Amino acid sequence: MLHRVEGIVIRSMDYGEGNAIITLCTENAGKVGVLVRGAKKARSRHAALIQPFTVGQFVFFRNNGGLGTLNSGEITESHHPLREDLVKAAYSCYACELLDRVLHDEETGSFWFRQLAACLTALEEGKEPGVIINVYEMKILQAAGYGPQLEQCVICGQERPDDQLLISPRLGGVLCRSCKHNDPPAMEISPRSLKLLRLFAKLDLTRLGNVDVKADTREELKKVMRAIMDFQLGLRLKSQNFLDQLDKYNI
């Protein structure tokens, strides 16, 4: 059966002599694997289609599920600048790998596609990558059913002043100091960072403007979101390790 989809290349790997297999996050067909014959050979007309972060129209044959075989394709957005910049490439790889690990094969819904597309566009436009990724992570958590509870204490359900709240990555939300005994390692969080997390929970990446966040707040948000992601999703991503190395050397 012939399929025509709009998709984003979230993974590309060599296969056999001169071939490649790409994984697409599509708008209406979920996550799809497609074999691209001859893509690695010189002068291949499909060489550009297998590049990570590429957005395009893909036409492929597939029978009864499984791997498809590309027939033709047309690029609508190459995102070439993302591959030329080390930092942008690192964050883009993380966004794609995270979605690849969370999204099940052929899980439908345009939400995943739209959020990734918006994330890559924002990174290419030069918006603060740490903030972009934190908003993206929040959208991933929410869509996967792990969105944190940020308004009331996850234990007693009471609303407290922001300066009396902690954040519990293990319990998945804010914790008042009266309930801290339920999770002694709960993290301190500043009212400013908590307000931004609430904003991230309400924002849609497709409508994100410029968000000005101070360096110390960005660092706090990164630590909090990393802890929440680790506890709630428990993923170990190669791209995250690379981002950690960039942080280590202040790149």
Score class of each variant (00 low, 15 high):
1 M>V: 07
8 I>K: 00
8 I>P: 00
9 V>T: 05
10 I>L: 07
10 I>M: 06
13 M>P: 03
14 D>N: 10
27 E>H: 03
35 L>S: 07
36 V>E: 03
42 A>M: 12
44 S>D: 08
47 A>G: 13
47 A>Y: 04
53 F>L: 07
57 Q>H: 10
67 L>C: 04
69 T>N: 14
70 L>K: 03
74 E>L: 02
87 V>F: 10
91 Y>T: 10
93 C>M: 15
97 E>V: 14
99 L>N: 05
99 L>G: 05
101 R>T: 11
104 H>N: 10
108 T>R: 15
109 G>I: 01
109 G>H: 09
110 S>N: 14
110 S>C: 11
114 R>F: 08
115 Q>T: 15
116 L>T: 07
120 L>F: 13
120 L>P: 15
127 K>I: 09
130 G>M: 06
134 N>W: 03
137 E>N: 04
140 I>S: 00
141 L>P: 00
147 G>K: 02
148 P>W: 01
151 E>C: 06
157 G>H: 12
160 R>Y: 14
161 P>Q: 08
163 D>C: 11
166 L>W: 08
167 I>D: 09
175 L>G: 14
175 L>F: 07
176 C>V: 12
177 R>S: 13
177 R>L: 12
177 R>T: 15
178 S>L: 13
181 H>A: 15
181 H>N: 13
183 D>I: 02
187 M>N: 01
188 E>S: 14
190 S>D: 08
192 R>T: 06
192 R>A: 12
201 A>E: 07
202 K>L: 06
204 D>I: 02
205 L>E: 02
208 L>N: 03
208 L>H: 05
208 L>I: 11
213 V>A: 01
220 E>V: 03
223 K>T: 01
227 A>Q: 05
229 M>F: 01
229 M>K: 00
229 M>G: 00
230 D>K: 09
231 F>D: 12
232 Q>A: 11
235 L>N: 04
235 L>Y: 02
239 S>Y: 00
240 Q>G: 02
241 N>T: 02
243 L>C: 01
243 L>N: 01
244 D>I: 03
247 D>H: 10
247 D>R: 11
248 K>A: 07
